[in-house]
Design a protein around this nucleic acid. Structure first.
Lengths: 205, 205
DNA sequence: TGTATAGTTGACTGAATGGTCAAGTGGAAA
DNA sequence: TTTCCACTTGACCATTCAGTCAACTATACA
Protein backbone atom coordinates (compact mmCIF):
# COMPACT_ATOMS: atom_id res chain seq x y z
CA UNK A 1 0.00 0.00 0.00
CA UNK A 2 1.16 3.52 -0.70
CA UNK A 3 4.00 4.69 -2.82
CA UNK A 4 7.50 3.25 -3.11
CA UNK A 5 9.75 4.27 -0.26
CA UNK A 6 11.88 7.14 -1.46
CA UNK A 7 15.31 8.27 -0.38
CA UNK A 8 13.98 11.71 0.45
CA UNK A 9 14.18 11.27 4.21
CA UNK A 10 17.77 10.08 4.13
CA UNK A 11 18.66 12.82 1.66
CA UNK A 12 17.34 15.40 4.12
CA UNK A 13 19.29 13.85 6.98
CA UNK A 14 22.50 13.69 4.96
CA UNK A 15 22.12 17.29 3.87
CA UNK A 16 21.40 18.37 7.43
CA UNK A 17 24.49 16.56 8.69
CA UNK A 18 26.65 18.41 6.21
CA UNK A 19 25.14 21.82 6.96
CA UNK A 20 25.16 21.39 10.72
CA UNK A 21 28.66 19.97 10.65
CA UNK A 22 30.07 22.95 8.81
CA UNK A 23 27.81 25.60 10.34
CA UNK A 24 25.52 25.16 13.31
CA UNK A 25 21.96 24.15 14.02
CA UNK A 26 20.66 27.65 14.67
CA UNK A 27 22.40 29.24 11.71
CA UNK A 28 20.84 27.01 9.09
CA UNK A 29 17.22 27.05 8.01
CA UNK A 30 14.76 24.42 6.95
CA UNK A 31 14.58 26.17 3.58
CA UNK A 32 18.33 25.89 3.17
CA UNK A 33 18.27 22.19 3.94
CA UNK A 34 15.38 21.63 1.53
CA UNK A 35 16.98 23.60 -1.29
CA UNK A 36 20.30 21.83 -0.93
CA UNK A 37 18.58 18.44 -0.76
CA UNK A 38 16.33 19.28 -3.70
CA UNK A 39 13.24 18.56 -1.64
CA UNK A 40 10.09 20.61 -1.14
CA UNK A 41 9.26 22.00 2.25
CA UNK A 42 6.05 20.01 2.44
CA UNK A 43 8.07 16.82 2.10
CA UNK A 44 10.34 17.91 4.92
CA UNK A 45 7.39 18.24 7.26
CA UNK A 46 5.97 14.98 6.01
CA UNK A 47 9.01 13.21 7.43
CA UNK A 48 9.93 15.42 10.37
CA UNK A 49 7.51 17.13 12.75
CA UNK A 50 9.97 19.97 13.36
CA UNK A 51 13.45 21.27 12.70
CA UNK A 52 14.52 20.05 16.15
CA UNK A 53 13.34 16.55 15.29
CA UNK A 54 15.52 16.55 12.20
CA UNK A 55 18.47 17.55 14.38
CA UNK A 56 17.76 14.58 16.61
CA UNK A 57 17.53 12.19 13.67
CA UNK A 58 20.69 13.72 12.29
CA UNK A 59 22.51 12.98 15.51
CA UNK A 60 21.17 9.43 15.59
CA UNK A 61 22.32 8.90 12.03
CA UNK A 62 25.82 10.18 12.83
CA UNK A 63 26.02 7.95 15.84
CA UNK A 64 24.85 4.88 13.90
CA UNK A 65 27.54 5.52 11.32
CA UNK A 66 30.17 6.04 14.00
CA UNK A 67 29.27 3.03 16.09
CA UNK A 68 30.03 0.64 13.23
CA UNK A 69 33.59 1.91 13.08
CA UNK A 70 33.97 2.12 16.83
CA UNK A 71 32.81 -1.46 17.32
CA UNK A 72 35.43 -2.62 14.87
CA UNK A 73 38.21 -0.36 16.13
CA UNK A 74 37.56 -1.15 19.80
CA UNK A 75 37.12 -4.86 19.19
CA UNK A 76 38.38 -6.83 22.20
CA UNK A 77 40.45 -8.90 19.77
CA UNK A 78 42.76 -5.96 19.24
CA UNK A 79 45.50 -4.95 21.63
CA UNK A 80 44.16 -2.00 23.66
CA UNK A 81 46.92 0.30 22.47
CA UNK A 82 46.17 -0.59 18.87
CA UNK A 83 42.59 0.47 19.49
CA UNK A 84 43.77 3.89 20.52
CA UNK A 85 46.01 4.15 17.50
CA UNK A 86 43.17 3.20 15.20
CA UNK A 87 40.61 5.53 16.72
CA UNK A 88 42.97 8.48 16.29
CA UNK A 89 43.63 7.40 12.70
CA UNK A 90 39.90 7.18 12.11
CA UNK A 91 39.23 10.61 13.60
CA UNK A 92 42.11 12.09 11.61
CA UNK A 93 40.86 10.57 8.38
CA UNK A 94 37.30 11.83 8.83
CA UNK A 95 38.44 15.30 9.81
CA UNK A 96 40.74 15.51 6.83
CA UNK A 97 38.01 14.29 4.50
CA UNK A 98 35.52 16.85 5.80
CA UNK A 99 38.09 19.59 5.69
CA UNK A 100 38.65 18.95 1.99
CA UNK A 101 34.97 18.44 1.27
CA UNK A 102 33.67 21.46 3.19
CA UNK A 103 36.67 23.75 3.06
CA UNK A 104 37.21 23.93 6.82
CA UNK A 105 38.06 21.72 9.77
CA UNK A 106 34.66 20.86 11.22
CA UNK A 107 35.18 18.97 14.48
CA UNK A 108 32.61 16.54 15.80
CA UNK A 109 29.08 17.26 14.59
CA UNK A 110 27.45 15.49 17.51
CA UNK A 111 29.40 17.29 20.19
CA UNK A 112 28.97 20.64 18.43
CA UNK A 113 25.25 20.10 18.14
CA UNK A 114 25.00 18.81 21.68
CA UNK A 115 26.93 21.74 23.08
CA UNK A 116 24.93 24.26 21.09
CA UNK A 117 21.58 22.91 22.22
CA UNK A 118 22.63 21.86 25.73
CA UNK A 119 19.65 22.20 28.01
CA UNK A 120 17.41 23.34 25.17
CA UNK A 121 16.07 20.17 23.57
CA UNK A 122 15.52 17.36 26.03
CA UNK A 123 15.70 14.56 23.48
CA UNK A 124 18.90 15.85 21.92
CA UNK A 125 20.35 16.29 25.38
CA UNK A 126 19.56 12.70 26.25
CA UNK A 127 20.95 11.44 22.97
CA UNK A 128 24.29 13.24 23.16
CA UNK A 129 24.72 12.21 26.78
CA UNK A 130 24.16 8.59 25.81
CA UNK A 131 26.66 8.96 22.99
CA UNK A 132 29.25 10.39 25.38
CA UNK A 133 28.67 7.54 27.80
CA UNK A 134 29.18 4.95 25.08
CA UNK A 135 32.39 6.49 23.82
CA UNK A 136 33.75 6.84 27.32
CA UNK A 137 32.97 3.17 27.93
CA UNK A 138 35.16 2.21 24.97
CA UNK A 139 38.08 4.01 26.57
CA UNK A 140 37.22 2.41 29.87
CA UNK A 141 37.47 -1.03 28.33
CA UNK A 142 40.85 -0.16 26.88
CA UNK A 143 42.06 0.66 30.37
CA UNK A 144 40.54 -2.43 31.93
CA UNK A 145 42.15 -4.63 29.31
CA UNK A 146 45.51 -2.95 29.86
CA UNK A 147 45.19 -3.65 33.56
CA UNK A 148 44.32 -7.25 32.83
CA UNK A 149 47.44 -7.47 30.69
CA UNK A 150 49.39 -5.91 33.52
CA UNK A 151 50.52 -3.13 31.23
CA UNK A 152 49.32 -0.28 33.38
CA UNK A 153 48.97 0.33 37.09
CA UNK A 154 46.12 -1.82 38.37
CA UNK A 155 45.04 0.95 40.71
CA UNK A 156 44.24 3.23 37.80
CA UNK A 157 40.86 4.88 38.22
CA UNK A 158 39.50 3.72 34.91
CA UNK A 159 36.33 5.81 35.05
CA UNK A 160 38.24 9.00 35.64
CA UNK A 161 40.93 8.28 33.14
CA UNK A 162 38.44 7.26 30.46
CA UNK A 163 36.57 10.53 30.89
CA UNK A 164 39.87 12.32 30.69
CA UNK A 165 40.82 10.63 27.46
CA UNK A 166 37.44 11.41 25.97
CA UNK A 167 37.65 15.06 27.01
CA UNK A 168 41.11 15.30 25.52
CA UNK A 169 39.89 14.10 22.14
CA UNK A 170 36.82 16.33 22.29
CA UNK A 171 38.94 19.31 23.21
CA UNK A 172 41.35 18.66 20.37
CA UNK A 173 38.45 18.51 17.93
CA UNK A 174 37.03 21.84 19.05
CA UNK A 175 40.45 23.47 19.03
CA UNK A 176 41.13 22.05 15.58
CA UNK A 177 37.87 23.53 14.31
CA UNK A 178 38.66 26.91 15.80
CA UNK A 179 42.21 26.95 14.45
CA UNK A 180 41.19 25.28 11.21
CA UNK A 181 44.26 23.15 11.74
CA UNK A 182 44.52 19.39 11.94
CA UNK A 183 48.25 19.17 12.50
CA UNK A 184 48.06 18.43 16.21
CA UNK A 185 45.47 15.71 15.72
CA UNK A 186 47.43 14.23 12.86
CA UNK A 187 50.85 14.30 14.46
CA UNK A 188 50.53 14.42 18.23
CA UNK A 189 47.21 13.14 19.45
CA UNK A 190 48.06 9.49 19.09
CA UNK A 191 51.16 9.67 21.24
CA UNK A 192 49.45 12.01 23.68
CA UNK A 193 46.59 9.61 24.22
CA UNK A 194 48.88 6.64 24.63
CA UNK A 195 51.15 8.53 27.00
CA UNK A 196 48.13 9.56 29.02
CA UNK A 197 47.05 5.95 29.33
CA UNK A 198 50.46 4.86 30.49
CA UNK A 199 50.74 7.63 33.03
CA UNK A 200 50.73 6.31 36.54
CA UNK A 201 48.70 8.62 38.71
CA UNK A 202 50.37 10.58 41.47
CA UNK A 203 53.66 8.90 41.74
CA UNK A 204 56.13 10.88 39.73
CA UNK A 205 58.41 13.54 41.19
CA UNK B 1 30.71 68.32 23.32
CA UNK B 2 27.88 65.85 23.07
CA UNK B 3 26.01 64.10 25.75
CA UNK B 4 27.33 62.33 28.85
CA UNK B 5 28.77 58.92 28.10
CA UNK B 6 26.15 56.37 28.99
CA UNK B 7 26.54 52.79 30.10
CA UNK B 8 24.36 51.61 27.22
CA UNK B 9 27.20 50.08 25.23
CA UNK B 10 28.53 48.09 28.15
CA UNK B 11 25.01 47.07 29.10
CA UNK B 12 24.54 45.64 25.61
CA UNK B 13 27.84 43.79 25.78
CA UNK B 14 27.08 42.37 29.21
CA UNK B 15 23.65 41.24 28.12
CA UNK B 16 25.09 39.69 24.97
CA UNK B 17 27.70 37.81 26.99
CA UNK B 18 25.02 36.30 29.17
CA UNK B 19 22.77 35.33 26.27
CA UNK B 20 25.56 33.92 24.12
CA UNK B 21 27.07 32.10 27.06
CA UNK B 22 23.88 30.28 27.87
CA UNK B 23 22.58 29.92 24.33
CA UNK B 24 24.52 30.57 21.14
CA UNK B 25 25.24 33.44 18.79
CA UNK B 26 22.88 32.31 16.05
CA UNK B 27 20.02 31.44 18.36
CA UNK B 28 19.70 34.88 19.91
CA UNK B 29 18.45 37.99 18.17
CA UNK B 30 19.34 41.64 18.32
CA UNK B 31 15.79 42.29 19.54
CA UNK B 32 16.29 39.84 22.38
CA UNK B 33 19.52 41.50 23.44
CA UNK B 34 17.94 44.95 23.27
CA UNK B 35 14.84 43.95 25.23
CA UNK B 36 16.88 42.27 27.94
CA UNK B 37 19.24 45.23 28.16
CA UNK B 38 16.35 47.73 28.14
CA UNK B 39 17.81 49.49 25.13
CA UNK B 40 16.21 50.54 21.86
CA UNK B 41 17.29 48.99 18.62
CA UNK B 42 18.46 52.30 17.21
CA UNK B 43 20.86 52.62 20.13
CA UNK B 44 22.23 49.17 19.41
CA UNK B 45 23.10 50.15 15.87
CA UNK B 46 24.50 53.44 17.09
CA UNK B 47 27.17 51.52 19.00
CA UNK B 48 27.60 48.42 16.85
CA UNK B 49 27.56 48.32 13.06
CA UNK B 50 26.21 44.76 13.08
CA UNK B 51 25.30 41.81 15.22
CA UNK B 52 28.62 40.18 14.32
CA UNK B 53 30.48 43.22 15.57
CA UNK B 54 28.75 42.93 18.92
CA UNK B 55 29.86 39.31 19.06
CA UNK B 56 33.43 40.42 18.49
CA UNK B 57 33.23 43.09 21.19
CA UNK B 58 31.63 40.55 23.47
CA UNK B 59 34.55 38.21 22.98
CA UNK B 60 37.04 41.00 23.57
CA UNK B 61 35.25 41.95 26.75
CA UNK B 62 35.34 38.35 28.02
CA UNK B 63 39.01 38.08 27.22
CA UNK B 64 39.82 41.36 28.96
CA UNK B 65 38.04 40.14 32.06
CA UNK B 66 39.78 36.78 31.91
CA UNK B 67 43.25 38.12 31.28
CA UNK B 68 43.25 40.01 34.57
CA UNK B 69 42.72 36.78 36.47
CA UNK B 70 45.09 34.79 34.29
CA UNK B 71 47.89 37.29 34.75
CA UNK B 72 47.52 37.01 38.49
CA UNK B 73 47.09 33.24 38.57
CA UNK B 74 49.96 32.56 36.20
CA UNK B 75 52.24 35.08 37.88
CA UNK B 76 55.86 33.90 37.67
CA UNK B 77 56.09 34.45 41.40
CA UNK B 78 53.91 31.45 42.02
CA UNK B 79 55.11 27.89 41.91
CA UNK B 80 54.09 26.48 38.51
CA UNK B 81 51.98 23.76 40.09
CA UNK B 82 50.16 26.30 42.22
CA UNK B 83 49.27 28.14 39.01
CA UNK B 84 47.60 25.04 37.70
CA UNK B 85 45.73 24.54 40.94
CA UNK B 86 44.53 28.12 40.90
CA UNK B 87 43.45 28.13 37.29
CA UNK B 88 41.31 25.05 37.84
CA UNK B 89 39.85 26.65 40.96
CA UNK B 90 39.09 29.79 38.98
CA UNK B 91 37.44 27.86 36.15
CA UNK B 92 35.45 25.82 38.65
CA UNK B 93 34.26 28.91 40.48
CA UNK B 94 33.13 30.70 37.33
CA UNK B 95 31.36 27.64 36.00
CA UNK B 96 29.57 27.10 39.27
CA UNK B 97 28.56 30.74 39.45
CA UNK B 98 27.18 30.71 35.90
CA UNK B 99 25.43 27.42 36.51
CA UNK B 100 23.58 28.92 39.43
CA UNK B 101 22.95 32.21 37.69
CA UNK B 102 21.79 30.80 34.36
CA UNK B 103 20.43 27.43 35.42
CA UNK B 104 22.85 25.34 33.38
CA UNK B 105 26.54 24.60 33.04
CA UNK B 106 27.64 26.95 30.28
CA UNK B 107 31.24 26.15 29.39
CA UNK B 108 33.54 28.75 27.92
CA UNK B 109 31.73 31.52 26.05
CA UNK B 110 34.71 32.41 23.92
CA UNK B 111 35.43 28.87 22.77
CA UNK B 112 31.74 28.19 22.15
CA UNK B 113 31.40 31.35 20.10
CA UNK B 114 34.65 30.70 18.29
CA UNK B 115 33.67 27.15 17.44
CA UNK B 116 30.21 28.16 16.30
CA UNK B 117 31.49 30.87 13.95
CA UNK B 118 34.71 29.13 12.91
CA UNK B 119 35.55 30.21 9.39
CA UNK B 120 32.54 32.50 9.19
CA UNK B 121 33.62 35.81 10.67
CA UNK B 122 37.23 36.63 9.97
CA UNK B 123 37.66 39.04 12.88
CA UNK B 124 36.13 36.66 15.39
CA UNK B 125 38.29 33.87 14.00
CA UNK B 126 41.41 35.96 14.47
CA UNK B 127 40.36 36.98 17.97
CA UNK B 128 39.65 33.51 19.27
CA UNK B 129 42.84 32.17 17.76
CA UNK B 130 44.80 34.87 19.52
CA UNK B 131 43.04 34.02 22.78
CA UNK B 132 43.90 30.34 22.38
CA UNK B 133 47.52 31.21 21.71
CA UNK B 134 47.72 33.36 24.83
CA UNK B 135 46.22 30.70 27.06
CA UNK B 136 48.47 28.03 25.62
CA UNK B 137 51.45 30.27 26.30
CA UNK B 138 50.53 30.39 29.99
CA UNK B 139 50.67 26.60 30.15
CA UNK B 140 53.90 26.67 28.21
CA UNK B 141 55.47 28.95 30.79
CA UNK B 142 54.35 26.59 33.55
CA UNK B 143 56.20 23.78 31.81
CA UNK B 144 59.31 25.86 31.15
CA UNK B 145 59.45 26.91 34.80
CA UNK B 146 59.04 23.34 35.94
CA UNK B 147 61.93 22.34 33.72
CA UNK B 148 64.02 25.17 35.14
CA UNK B 149 63.20 23.89 38.61
CA UNK B 150 64.18 20.43 37.46
CA UNK B 151 60.78 19.12 38.47
CA UNK B 152 59.93 17.60 35.12
CA UNK B 153 61.88 15.98 32.33
CA UNK B 154 63.88 18.66 30.56
CA UNK B 155 63.22 17.02 27.21
CA UNK B 156 59.51 17.68 27.54
CA UNK B 157 58.09 19.16 24.35
CA UNK B 158 56.57 22.18 26.02
CA UNK B 159 54.67 23.38 22.95
CA UNK B 160 52.96 20.04 22.47
CA UNK B 161 52.24 19.49 26.11
CA UNK B 162 50.87 23.00 26.59
CA UNK B 163 48.49 22.51 23.69
CA UNK B 164 47.50 19.22 25.21
CA UNK B 165 46.74 20.77 28.57
CA UNK B 166 44.70 23.50 26.95
CA UNK B 167 42.73 21.01 24.88
CA UNK B 168 42.06 18.95 27.97
CA UNK B 169 40.56 21.91 29.78
CA UNK B 170 38.56 22.96 26.73
CA UNK B 171 37.27 19.45 26.28
CA UNK B 172 36.22 19.22 29.91
CA UNK B 173 34.32 22.49 29.58
CA UNK B 174 32.40 21.32 26.53
CA UNK B 175 31.66 17.96 28.09
CA UNK B 176 30.53 19.68 31.31
CA UNK B 177 28.14 21.85 29.32
CA UNK B 178 26.73 18.88 27.47
CA UNK B 179 26.33 16.79 30.60
CA UNK B 180 25.30 19.80 32.69
CA UNK B 181 27.65 18.41 35.27
CA UNK B 182 30.60 20.10 36.93
CA UNK B 183 31.66 17.21 39.12
CA UNK B 184 34.60 16.15 37.00
CA UNK B 185 35.94 19.68 36.75
CA UNK B 186 35.44 20.22 40.45
CA UNK B 187 36.91 16.97 41.67
CA UNK B 188 39.25 15.53 39.07
CA UNK B 189 40.53 18.14 36.67
CA UNK B 190 43.13 19.56 39.02
CA UNK B 191 44.85 16.25 39.63
CA UNK B 192 44.46 15.27 36.01
CA UNK B 193 46.20 18.39 34.81
CA UNK B 194 49.00 18.07 37.32
CA UNK B 195 49.46 14.40 36.54
CA UNK B 196 49.61 15.24 32.87
CA UNK B 197 52.33 17.77 33.50
CA UNK B 198 54.37 15.35 35.49
CA UNK B 199 54.05 12.59 32.94
CA UNK B 200 57.34 11.79 31.32
CA UNK B 201 56.80 11.08 27.65
CA UNK B 202 57.39 7.63 26.25
CA UNK B 203 59.22 5.95 29.00
CA UNK B 204 56.74 3.96 31.00
CA UNK B 205 55.97 0.30 30.48
C1' DT C 1 -9.00 -2.21 -12.54
C1' DG C 2 -10.01 0.25 -8.39
C1' DT C 3 -8.73 2.09 -4.16
C1' DA C 4 -6.23 3.17 -0.21
C1' DT C 5 -2.32 5.45 1.11
C1' DA C 6 2.67 7.04 1.28
C1' DG C 7 4.86 10.59 -0.66
C1' DT C 8 5.01 15.26 -3.30
C1' DT C 9 4.01 19.90 -4.53
C1' DG C 10 4.24 24.88 -3.92
C1' DA C 11 1.69 28.53 -2.44
C1' DC C 12 0.62 30.49 1.92
C1' DT C 13 0.87 32.48 6.91
C1' DG C 14 2.17 35.20 10.70
C1' DA C 15 5.92 36.02 13.36
C1' DA C 16 10.69 37.13 13.76
C1' DT C 17 14.90 38.51 11.60
C1' DG C 18 18.91 42.08 10.91
C1' DG C 19 19.15 46.51 9.79
C1' DT C 20 17.58 51.71 8.60
C1' DC C 21 16.18 56.24 9.46
C1' DA C 22 14.36 60.81 10.49
C1' DA C 23 13.12 63.16 14.27
C1' DG C 24 14.16 63.96 18.67
C1' DT C 25 16.81 64.92 23.56
C1' DG C 26 20.08 66.71 26.66
C1' DG C 27 24.50 67.91 28.42
C1' DA C 28 29.19 70.08 27.41
C1' DA C 29 31.57 73.78 25.61
C1' DA C 30 31.78 78.37 23.11
C1' DT D 1 22.30 81.26 25.82
C1' DT D 2 23.23 79.15 21.88
C1' DT D 3 25.20 75.66 19.31
C1' DC D 4 26.90 71.19 18.57
C1' DC D 5 26.77 66.42 18.62
C1' DA D 6 26.70 62.02 21.11
C1' DC D 7 23.04 59.56 22.21
C1' DT D 8 17.95 58.05 22.10
C1' DT D 9 13.59 56.87 20.21
C1' DG D 10 10.35 53.89 17.87
C1' DA D 11 8.35 53.35 13.62
C1' DC D 12 9.60 51.16 9.52
C1' DC D 13 11.59 47.88 5.79
C1' DA D 14 12.61 43.82 3.10
C1' DT D 15 13.70 39.34 3.94
C1' DT D 16 13.75 35.08 6.13
C1' DC D 17 11.92 32.07 9.47
C1' DA D 18 9.38 27.61 11.00
C1' DG D 19 5.48 25.58 10.03
C1' DT D 20 0.63 24.61 7.42
C1' DC D 21 -2.32 22.95 4.02
C1' DA D 22 -5.20 21.33 0.31
C1' DA D 23 -4.55 19.42 -3.88
C1' DC D 24 -2.00 16.17 -6.42
C1' DT D 25 0.73 11.77 -7.88
C1' DA D 26 2.21 7.27 -8.07
C1' DT D 27 2.19 2.70 -6.55
C1' DA D 28 1.25 -1.64 -3.84
C1' DC D 29 -2.23 -4.57 -3.20
C1' DA D 30 -7.18 -6.42 -3.18
Amino acid sequence: MGRTQSDTKQKLIDTAIELIWRNSYSSISVDEICNKAGVQKGSFYHFFPSKADLALKTMESCQQEAIVHYDDIFSPKRHPIERLELIVDYISAIQEEKQQELGHVCGCPMMSLGAELAGKEALIDAQIQAICAIKISYYEQVLKDLIAKNEIDKDTNVKHKAELMFALVVGQLFVARIKNDLSFIKHNLKDALIDLVKLKSKELI
